[in-house]
């Protein structure tokens, strides 16, 4: 049984239709990426999957007992709220210190346990968010523009971390991203969203789909060129490039 099945999902705010007739399935262990322009309903789709948005029609079926790990697009901690990384990690689940350390290490942020959340840099903060999402050993990890505010080497390292997480824990990953070139090389499947599913499939299939080109590729400029640049090379060479960029 798939982890999540989205059937005919539509979402409306008043007269404004954000999503219409979206169908998608997430199988165990796969990395799925949602791409789409601003306002295409990417975040809304993710929020519908975690149950934060009620579908206007259609439904979201989660496998019974499914454990979700969620990394939000932005998490603002009010400066009046004192909270250490360790306490933040224990926010929703009672966990041992050892699990805390392990999760932080897996997310690439060891040694931060005792710090206050307010003292973390942008990159450290994202890693702690990832660690918190991982601590309960989720079946599905959801990342919403998780590399926002990171520079290019930082986000490349972050995505590499996520691939490692999948290899180590076997959890499925659903992410929303605007960094097309990185995402395309890291995903098993890509869903191109613009209010509805424009096209979906392996990165190569999506990249050559006319719907995708209509959204992202105007001639040779912009993101498509970036994407082609990466995809023309073999995967390991791609990794070397990112390594070098760091």
């Amino acid at each position: 049984m798939p982890l999540v099945t989205v059937e005919n999902l539509s979402l409306r705010y008043g007269a404004n239709t954000v999503l219409r007739d979206v169908d998608m399935v997430i199988e165990p262990g796969e990395i799925v990426t949602i791409v789409g322009p601003n306002g295409s309903g990417k975040t809304s789709l993710l929020r519908a999957i975690i149950g934060a948005e009620k579908p206007s029609s259609g439904r979201v079926i989660r496998k019974p007992g499914l454990k979700l790990g969620y990394v939000p697009q932005k998490l603002h901690i009010d400066p009046t709220l004192p909270i250490s990384v360790e306490r933040f990690m224990r926010l929703t689940h009672p966990v041992t210190r050892k699990d805390c350390v392990a999760a932080l290490k897996r997310a690439g942020a060891p040694d931060l346990m005792k710090r206050q959340m307010s003292q973390l840099s942008g990159g450290q903060f994202q890693r702690v968010l990832l660690a918190r999402a991982l601590i309960d050993r989720p079946d599905l990890l959801l990342l919403d523009e998780a590399t926002q505010g990171l520079d290019q080497p930082g986000s490349a390292a972050f995505y590499r971390q996520i691939e490692e997480v999948r290899q180590e824990t076997g959890c499925a990953i659903l992410m929303v991203s605007h960094e097309l070139h990185v995402v395309m090389s890291a995903s098993d499947r890509v869903i191109c969203l613009n209010g509805h599913v424009c096209c979906a499939g392996s990165p190569a299939v999506v990249a050559s789909a006319p719907e995708y080109r209509a959204l992202f590729g105007t001639g040779t400029g912009g993101a498509l060129a970036l994407y082609r640049h990466d995809h023309d090379h073999a995967h390991d060479q791609c990794d070397t490039t990112r390594e070098a960029a760091e």
Partner: peptide, 18 residues
């Protein structure tokens, strides 16, 4: 306490935790 704290930090974290 724990749930209130989670909901205060981020509503979506609360939803994701069920």
């Amino acid at each position: 306490w724990s749930r209130l704290l989670t909901a205060t930090l981020n509503e979506d974290l609360a939803y994701a935790s069920g």
